[in-house]
């Protein structure tokens, strides 16, 4: 297979890993102020992702780094074009990252409440922005013949892309609520199941809207595989919802994860072989060829990725295994 294609697949894999892992992680953050009624409960909620959130976030950094290495023009156009959106996301993620570490280091309620809200916004804003970004990728953005983004921040916001943002947020919340249901006990466990059921309804409606709008507004469904993946995502989502109803959270988590996988795969398949679509002229789109690095670099990075990604997956999976127990009130680090 051609190296450029392999790298497109690898980039998709990195984004799937990112959305799958950070998905529940953002969901947990978004639910924090609502599910945790007492300080202890909030600490428990945070500690469910305490040992793993940082490792999850590296998937985003790796996706960015890999994009830089494999498709430098995509990295350059996307990051400079979506400048203010990225700035907003970085601010949100900075607040979120330190909040986990700082929150429980002081006792007074105002201190802790401040960091809790930073975790909330630090989870909601990136989730929405990634939804907006992915839908903009498929819809196309104003890119000129020199690969420069010539729009503004507000060009990124349209009803379609906002539906994308809302969908990502609520699917992540659903995914996160199921994760919490798996990782907590007692009252919190009951509440997180309720949260999954409530957020699931909103997620279901927005998912259907998103797929409908994607059909109407973009050329994604020209690719049968991409359209199929999105439809399958709806099916797995509904199955996940039914499993939550039936109290089978383990399976439900697998299926909400599969929903994220299929959605991401669907959007990337719809893009292929483009990496950024120009709304001004199809010929100005960035593709896996005109945006790519040299064959030498692609080959080098392919070898590195094939050796390193499995190793990473292995030890990251092991860390989840070590922290597989439900979180009780004892031994809270955060």
């Amino acid at each position: 297979m051609e190296l450029n294609v392999i790298w497109f697949i690898l980039l998709t894999v990195l984004f799937i890993g990112f959305f799958f892992l950070e998905g529940f992680d953002y969901g947990v953050g978004a639910l924090l102020p609502f599910l945790g009624k007492t300080d202890l409960e909030r600490r428990i909620v945070i500690n469910t992702i305490g040992p793993v959130w940082d490792g999850n976030e590296v998937w985003m950094i790796t996706a960015g780094g890999a994009m830089f290495a494999a498709f430098p023009h995509m990295y350059a156009t996307l990051f400079s074009g979506f400048y203010l959106a990225l700035f907003l996301m970085l601010v949100a993620l900075i607040g979120r990252g330190v909040a986990f570490e700082f929150r429980s280091k002081e006792e007074y309620p105002q201190w802790r409440a401040t960091w809790d809200w930073l975790i909330f916004f630090g989870s909601v804003i990136p989730a929405v922005l990634w939804g907006v970004t992915v839908t903009n990728l498929i819809q196309g953005v104003p890119i000129d013949a020199k690969m420069h983004f010539v729009g503004t921040f507000f060009d990124l916001l349209s009803p379609y892309t906002l539906v994308g943002g809302v969908t990502f947020l609520f699917v992540f919340i659903f995914h996160g609520a199921i994760y919490l249901n798996l990782k907590t006990e007692g009252e919190l466990r009951i509440r997180s199941r309720q949260a999954a059921l409530t957020s699931g309804i909103i997620a279901a409606v927005s998912c259907l809207t998103l797929v409908g709008l994607t059909y109407a507004k973009t050329d994604l469904f020209k690719s049968a595989a991409a359209g199929g993946a999105l439809c399958a995502a709806i099916a797995t989502f509904l199955a996940a919802y039914a499993l939550v109803k039936l109290n089978r959270s383990g399976w439900a988590f697998g299926l909400s994860g599969l929903t994220i996988l299929l959605t991401t795969a669907g959007f990337f398949l719809g893009l292929f072989p483009r990496v950024l679509v120009s709304s001004l002229n199809p010929a100005w789109s960035l593709t896996i060829h005109n945006a790519a690095s040299s064959p030498y670099t692609l080959k080098l990075m392919t070898v590195a990725a094939f050796i390193l990604v499995p190793v990473v997956l292995a030890y990251q999976a092991w860390s989840y295994w070590v922290f597989r127990q439900r979180i009780s009130g004892k031994h809270l680090e955060y």
Partner: peptide
Amino acid sequence: GDIFGVPLALEALTAFYLESV
């Protein structure tokens, strides 16, 4: 990007994951 992206991506793959996990 052809040059500079490589150490950055390798930094994430070999070091950041290890460090944060």
